[in-house]
Design a protein around this nucleic acid. Structure first.
Length: 807
RNA sequence: GCCGCUGUGGUGGAAUAGGUAGACACAAGGGACUUAAAAUCCCUCGGGAGCAAUCCUGUGCCGGUUCAAGUCCGGCCAGCGGUACCA
């Protein structure tokens, strides 16, 4: 019988569709396992070959969990708001909702074609009003808790998308999406106060099981630094407040630098006001990118006629403005310690400013001495001869006592720009009332439906297309009933994805984003796998929202995900990133048509280390197909056992294969947990190779199909049926193994002389040292090496190796 | 620059915790079957020497620790990812 994968796969997919064996049950008595993958953006191109990698991996985990007796929630949905759809809609003059519907239909059929055990009844779509009602509801709650505010801020403006971008969406000075130039513009934007959660977002990483590089990257992004704020008086009587992490070096502060945007500059009338103004203008025209990238040598202008006073030395020191000091970090002003900061040192050399050594150990004439572990304080009255660490404590205390400063923690993390001047996003449910200011809509008016517009394009002024709809725009204030205008900006794509995993718990609820009971049962997510590229965006944003929802009593845990893992990218056959222009794109449809879904699932897992990038190989796909052909060949006819009584105690497998079967169960079980899908499959291949001689028994085949079913569910189920085993392969209990049966009774040991492999011996398992030594010495090859030599030492590693040291 | 990861056959990749390097595949070569091809099955497959038994050599480079190093330590080099004047 031929392995007709197309027929088999369609047959089982239809049955799964009708019988829904993978539905999750809210409140079941079994232990729960919530396994999550990042839901896709349904682009017009269809499923990318990269999608099946994480989806198959977590499908394997989900299927294994069910077999282990868990009530498994493995859901899927669509993150469907966003620019590509909108741009496509503009180009083709089709409503984005229509485009989205088509794309979701295509993705759905492609995902079903791969045989994933998703609970399709829980599928969510972020553009569905019954879904985004709750996205809007969360925004309202954020606003009510003073975590959403509108501010005039310099924003990243994409010249092509005509849209504000979050800092995270600007890559190398260009738009992450379209690659066009990004410039700075002042605009009034909705912002979310993620910075208020910075400390908890950083600290609580200690409480979750994320792979280390994700934690490191998030911590780095949040960028916590502990230091002090210190007041410097100026000769004008004003105070400049600075932030530093090196309070200990205060005596070495020989000048100050403030950012070109510093508010005091508007007040002051320095002698060289014109020069300063010119510098400010040049700086304001530069984009952030130019400011950071182009400037190798620091530039600056001294403010002539105004000096600051170092609070510990009481000496007058000059003040500069320079664009290397950022208005957006710390206080927008620094004290400069050229002896112990590389940038300050360079700047001091350029402008011929004094360099004072305050930590001994380096040579500040030659370069800045920045190491602070071992140095001792010098030239610092109050703190001389102290270690850097002690000096910090003492000087901070002194600053506080004299009302000159305080301890302070700063974060690199900035507030989240939440406005987009675009059509295809969730409308922000807020009105601007002439009398009351910003007023949120009452819950009864949610969802605020995205109205139909004729033209989806942004206006030339950069306003959202919604701004030109006067009928929609003009409304009444829910509070006072007076005239009000609606907010025309929409939310960014990150909004809907910041809480979607909560909706899966109770996707059809129209009273709440999900019921308390459902959330109590399913959350937190037990295992979340996704791409590294979402570490500082989606993953951080959703942790922030979750913590907020926890604070207002909506969710039961302060962290959304217990465990986070990450997969590597699939590259094209040429080792380059897949792209249409390179012509190296692999379409999953083609692979399924030619080899079947089970082969694709197997290959995408066998391709290499799950966590690393891997190049696609069309040739290597065949190897996985051949493996399934061999499995088919072994079991496509009903097997009748000749010697039924030759059985192993556990699992009833044949004695002739019991060792390799126990070994395989052990290896496959642990490999799945450790994301080592490639070696799990290699082990299954070895098992099948072993099944050629002697032939396997019925129970051997049963065990193979059980272990194979999470990886290649269709063929496993079909062969299960052919063999007339009870029930379904996917419903079997995940097998146990007998540790004592995972090793052969007769083993091969390496024999070394002076650490070099010279021979191997066959010897019973767990032989005593004496037997090993005797057997090894009697080995003809070894005898040659040790003859007439004195053995000074013998090293034995049990069941592995023996090493003779001779003289 | 800083942080993180990686470097193993012609290729993708294996190698618990320092203990037989190259599992499992792909490609290649040889053979069987076939009128032929495809498919399938069997054999070879890091490099070098040798008829052979066997020996030497080999995990990016240079050193070190150890009976024993792909694995540990020190110093480099290369590639990938993140971040970038963060005070």
């Amino acid at each position: 019988m031929k392995y007709d994968f197309t027929k088999i796969e369609q047959y089982w997919q239809k049955r799964w569709e009708a019988e829904k064996p993978f539905s999750a049950l809210n409140g079941d008595n079994k232990p729960k396992a919530y396994i999550l993958v990042e839901f896709p953006y349904p682009s017009g191109i269809g499923l990318h070959i990269g999608h099946p990698r994480p989806y198959t991996a977590m499908d394997i985990v989900s299927r294994k969990r069910r077999m282990q007796g868990y009530n498994v929630l493995y859901p899927i949905g669509f993150d469907a708001f966003g620019l590509p759809t909108e741009n496509y809609a503009i180009q083709k003059k089709i409503h984005p909702a229509e485009v989205t519907r088509e794309n979701i239909a295509k993705f759905t059929s492609q995902l079903k074609m791969l045989g994933y055990s998703f609970d399709w009844d829980r599928c969510v779509d972020t553009t569905d009003p019954t879904y985004y009602k709750w996205t809007q509801w969360i925004f309202i709650k954020l606003f009510e808790h003073n975590l959403a505010y509108k501010a005039l801020i310099p924003v990243n403006w994409c010249t092509s998308c005509k849209c504000v971008l979050a800092n995270e969406e600007v890559v190398d000075g260009v738009c992450e999406r379209c690659g066009s130039e990004v410039v700075r513009r002042e605009k009034s934007q909705w912002m979310l106060r993620i910075t208020k959660y910075a400390e908890r977002l950083a600290d609580d990483l200690d409480t979750v099981d994320y792979i280390e590089r994700v934690k490191i990257q998030q911590r780095h992004w949040i960028g916590r630094s502990v230091g002090a704020e210190v007041n410097f008086k100026t000769t004008t009587g004003d105070t400049i407040r600075i932030f530093t992490t090196r309070q200990d070096t205060l005596y070495g502060a020989t000048y100050m630098v403030i950012s070109p945007e510093h508010p005091l500059l508007a007040k002051w009338k320095p002698k060289n006001a014109d020069e300063i103004k010119t510098y400010q203008e040049i700086a304001s025209k530069k984009s952030d990118f130019e400011r950071t990238e182009l400037v190798k040598e620091k530039t600056g202008v001294r403010i002539i006629g105004i000096n600051a006073i170092n609070p510990v030395t009481n000496k007058e020191i000059p003040i500069f403005i320079s664009d290397y000091v950022l208005a957006s970090y710390g206080t927008g002003a620094i004290m400069a310690v050229p002896g112990h900061d590389a940038r300050d040192w360079e700047f001091a050399k350029k402008y011929d400013l004094p360099i004072v050594e305050v930590v001994s150990g380096g040579n500040v004439e030659k370069e800045a001495y920045t190491e602070c572990d071992t140095g001792i304080m010098v030239n610092s009255d109050l703190i001389n001869e102290l270690s850097v660490e002690d000096a910090k404590i003492k000087i901070t205390k002194w600053l506080i006592e004299n009302n000159l400063g305080e301890e302070k923690v700063n974060y690199k993390l900035r507030d989240w720009v939440f406005s987009r001047q675009r059509y295809w996003g969730e409308p922000i449910p807020i009105v601007d009332c002439e009398k009351c200011g910003f007023v949120v809509l009452p819950e009864s008016e949610l969802p605020l439906i995205l109205p139909d517009v004729k033209n989806y394009e942004t206006t030339e002024t950069g306003e959202s297309p919604l701004a030109s709809m006067t009928g929609w725009l003009k409304t009444t204030c829910p509070k006072c009933g007076g005239p009000a205008t609606r907010e025309t900006d929409t939310m960014p794509q990150w909004a809907g994805s910041s809480w979607y995993f909560l909706r899966y718990a109770d996707p059809h609820n129209d009273k709440a984003l999900a019921s308390k009971k459902a959330l109590d049962y399913w959350t937190p997510v037990d295992w979340y796998n996704g791409g590294m590229e979402h570490t500082t965006l989606h993953l951080l944003y959703s942790r922030f929202w979750h913590k907020f929802l926890y604070d207002i009593g909506v969710v039961p845990t302060s962290e959304p995900y217990s465990k986070r893992t990450s997969h590597g990218m699939i590259l094209g056959e040429d080792g380059q990133k897949m792209s249409k222009s390179r012509g190296n794109v692999v379409n999953p449809d083609d692979i399924v048509a030619e080899y079947g879904a089970d082969t694709l699932r197997l290959y995408i897992m066998f391709i290499g280390d799950f966590e690393k990038t891997a190049p696609w190989s069309q040739q290597a796909v065949k190897g996985c197909k051949r493996f399934l052909d061999r499995v088919w060949g072994l079991a496509c006819n009903k097997i009748i056992d000749e010697n039924e009584n030759n059985k192993s105690a556990l699992n009833n497998v044949s004695q002739s294969h019991e060792v390799i079967i126990n070994k395989t169960i052990k290896k496959v079980s642990s490999d799945i947990e450790n994301l080592k899908f490639n070696t799990a499959i290699a082990t299954l291949m070895s098992l099948v190779n072993d099944f050629y001689t002697p032939p396997p028994s019925r129970n051997d085949i049963k065990m193979l199909l059980t272990l194979l079913s999470p990886f290649a569910p269709h063929i496993a189920e079909e062969l299960w049926k052919i063999q007339e085993f009870d029930g379904y392969a996917s419903e079997q209990e995940w097998p146990d193994y007998d540790e004592s049966k995972t090793v052969d009774s007769q083993i091969e040991m390496a024999v070394q002389v002076l650490g070099k492999l010279r021979s191997t011996i066959n010897i019973p398992l767990d032989s005593d040292d004496e037997t090993i030594i005797e057997t090894a010495k009697n080995d003809s090859k070894i005898a040659r090496y040790i003859e007439g030599k004195e053995i000074t030492r013998t090293i034995i590693v049990k069941n592995k190796l023996i090493n003779f040291i001779i003289k």
